[in-house]
Amino acid sequence: MASINNTDILKSIDYAKKNQLFEKLNNIYDTLPKGECTGCGNCCMESVGINLIEFLNIFNYLQDKDELRKKSLDSIIDYYFMEFMEKKSCPFKDENNRCEIYEVRPLNCRLFGHWKKEDYNKNLKDVTDKNKQYKNIMKIKYGFDISDEVVNYKIKYCEEFIPENRYLSKSERLNFADNIMVLDSRLFSKRVIDIEFRDRGIVEYFIDSLLDQNMSYNIKVRISKGRNISKRTISRLKRMLIK
């Protein structure tokens, strides 16, 4: 599996601009309900799942912000290659718990807090169960243990967030996701970008734009198996990839 070619990314951004896809994405964002957030940053502790159009939107946002782009890539590389060993916060959260890409933050970030507690906790249990299954698979396949801190980490339901009107049902949340998926389908159907369609987190999208997917995953596994070489290897990767 190849990386996401940067030329294809730029062509896709150009296509999205010409066809008002970013504008349509923002229109979807604008229909989302609002709420009162304390800004504690406790929810910003994972590589949230995003759509292709959202990745392009964030990539485009960072293009003329060289310092922020390099800082973000530095944190993204740390997050990805240490993911099996250490639980790190979202690479886009700063030292003051503020989101550095707040204007273009993805749907999953915007919807956090709008879940009913029972829905959220059920999903959280499902995620933890899948993490435990994945740990067993990695142990059998590669012979190392994913850290229990990582496997069992839970972003607790936020009792402080207050939705403007009411909590959203599962079908309402999925409807927003479906609307954004329609924008993705434009990019895939026109073959604007040559990548396989699969679920990716925000970190994975950026890593895939830097390295061949098989190569990055194999390096990640090797780092996880030999922790004494992790910092040196990651430093070399940063020097090679961040320009």
Rank of each mutant, 00 (worst) to 15 (best):
T128N: 12
D94S: 12
E196K: 13
E67G: 01
G35Q: 01
N152E: 15
R98G: 06
E196P: 12
K18C: 10
D212C: 12
Y134V: 09
I13S: 04
R198G: 07
M138I: 15
I4R: 00
N136R: 09
D74T: 07
S189F: 04
V104K: 06
I146A: 02
K117Y: 06
K93Q: 13
S189N: 13
K132T: 14
I58V: 11
R191E: 14
Y61I: 07
E46V: 10
K65G: 05
S185K: 11
K170M: 10
I76L: 07
R186N: 13
E204C: 09
K156L: 12
G143N: 12
E196H: 09
Y217P: 00
E46W: 07
R110G: 01
M85F: 00
Y61H: 08
I155N: 08
I4D: 01
Y134L: 15
K141D: 10
I9G: 02
R98T: 12
I242K: 06
S89K: 10
L211T: 11
L10M: 07
Y134P: 06
T233P: 00
K34C: 06
I28K: 05
N165Q: 10
Y79V: 00
K156T: 10
L21G: 08
M215I: 14
M181R: 10
S209D: 03
S75Q: 13
Y102K: 01
M1V: 08
L111F: 04
E160C: 09
S185A: 05
N57R: 11
K225S: 14
I4W: 00
N165H: 12
N26A: 07
K170I: 15
F197Y: 10
R105W: 01
S171V: 06
I195D: 04
E46K: 14
R98D: 09
K34G: 07
E172D: 10
Y80S: 04
S47A: 14
S12N: 10
K225A: 13
D145C: 07
Y217R: 12
I242P: 02
S75V: 00
G39C: 02
F59H: 12
R166Q: 05
G49Q: 14
K65V: 05
Y120E: 08
K24I: 05
I180G: 00
I101T: 07
V150M: 12
Y134W: 15
V182P: 00
F55N: 01
V192F: 08
K122N: 06
Q20Y: 15
T38A: 05
R191G: 05
N42L: 07
N165A: 05
D208G: 03
K87V: 02
F55D: 00
E67K: 09
D194G: 03
K11R: 15
D126W: 04
D78H: 11
K116P: 08
E159Q: 13
N152R: 05
R236Y: 10
D199S: 13
D199M: 14
E67C: 03
P91I: 11
N6P: 14
L210R: 14
